Simulated scan of single mutants.
Amino acid sequence: MSEWKAKRFWTEVHVVPEDAGFGIRLDTRPVKTPAKRSLIAPTREFADAIAAEWDAQEEKIDPLKMPFTRTANAALDKVAVQHREVADMLAAYGDADLLCYRADRPDSLIARQSEQWDPLLDWAETALGARLRPRTGVMHIAQDPAALAALSVRVHALGNFELAAFHDLVSLSGSLILGFAAAEDVKPAPQIWDISRLDEIWQAEEWGRDDDAEAAAEVKKAAFLHAKRVFALSQ
């Protein structure tokens, strides 16, 4: 039995100003989220990206080809109703940030981690008011509570759409600092993604590529770059 899919019923897609942002109309019908909330984007550019996805649908609607719509749905149906919980979860990454867990050998990996990760920790101290300290090994050592509090305030200050995008920037990279660095354009997003995969890249250079792992990483990279685009369009 074939899976049922909704069919396109509209002729034109319109972006319309709303009190809280910009809505999308399919002919005269407003787009709703799965929870039946009005899909209102925070900026015209974000609304245009959503509208383009709906306009590109052919006979049958394929949600997998609508990443901006899916992110907007998550921002409105999930993040908006549990903003504090999502922000708390992401802020907690600071106490176990990827950039702070360093190898104890070999020297080539130690040097590469220091070269690529230390400048971002320095940037976080200056730009975010939070100094996180690197540790050798994988055992957890708590970070300075004052630094974590400063980072938490910044996470909680993000709007619903920003936080939805920030969730993927942090969770995919494994680093709160890299999430902020991507959001603040400290480096190009593809470069930040590679920095988050420093260990995997080094291992591939030493031992050879794992095609399955590389394919999975490419999927995650695409999601990371999409999240960066969403964050930018949300402002």
Rank of each mutant, 00 (worst) to 15 (best):
W117M: 01
D118A: 04
D118V: 06
D118K: 04
P119L: 14
P119M: 13
P119C: 15
P119S: 14
L120Y: 10
L121C: 07
L121K: 03
L121G: 01
D122G: 12
A124T: 02
A124G: 04
A124Q: 00
A124H: 01
A124N: 03
A124Y: 01
E125V: 03
T126A: 15
T126H: 12
T126Q: 13
T126L: 14
A127V: 12
L128A: 08
L128D: 07
L128V: 08
G129Y: 04
G129L: 06
G129R: 06
A130P: 00
A130W: 02
R131I: 07
L132I: 10
R133Y: 10
R133M: 10
P134I: 08
P134F: 14
P134M: 12
R135G: 05
T136P: 08
T136I: 15
T136C: 11
T136W: 12
G137Y: 07
G137T: 10
V138F: 15
V138A: 15
M139V: 13
M139E: 12
M139S: 14
H140F: 06
A142E: 11
A142W: 00
A142F: 00
A142L: 05
Q143N: 05
Q143V: 03
D144C: 00
D144I: 00
A146K: 09
A146C: 01
A146S: 06
A147C: 14
L148Q: 03
L148D: 02
A149N: 06
A150K: 01
A150V: 00
A150Q: 01
L151K: 09
L151G: 14
L151I: 12
V153E: 04
R154V: 05
R154W: 11
V155C: 01
H156I: 06
H156R: 11
H156W: 05
A157S: 13
A157Y: 03
L158R: 13
L158S: 10
N160S: 11
N160W: 08
F161V: 07
F161Y: 13
E162K: 14
L163P: 01
L163G: 02
L163H: 01
L163M: 04
A165L: 10
A165Q: 05
A165M: 08
F166W: 13
F166A: 13
F166N: 11
H167G: 03
H167R: 10
H167D: 08
D168N: 07
D168S: 03
L169C: 08
V170E: 04
L172K: 15
L172V: 10
S173R: 02
S173C: 04
G174Q: 06
G174F: 13
G174L: 06
G174M: 07
S175M: 10
L176Y: 09
L176W: 11
L178Y: 03
L178V: 02
G179C: 10
G179W: 06
F180N: 08
F180K: 02
F180E: 07
A181R: 03
A181S: 12
A183Y: 02
A183F: 03
A183Q: 00
E184L: 15
E184S: 15
D185F: 13
D185S: 14
V186G: 06
K187R: 12
K187A: 13
P188G: 03
P188H: 06
A189G: 05
P190Y: 07
Q191F: 10
Q191L: 14
I192L: 15
W193H: 00
W193F: 11
W193E: 02
D194H: 13
D194S: 01
D194L: 09
D194R: 02
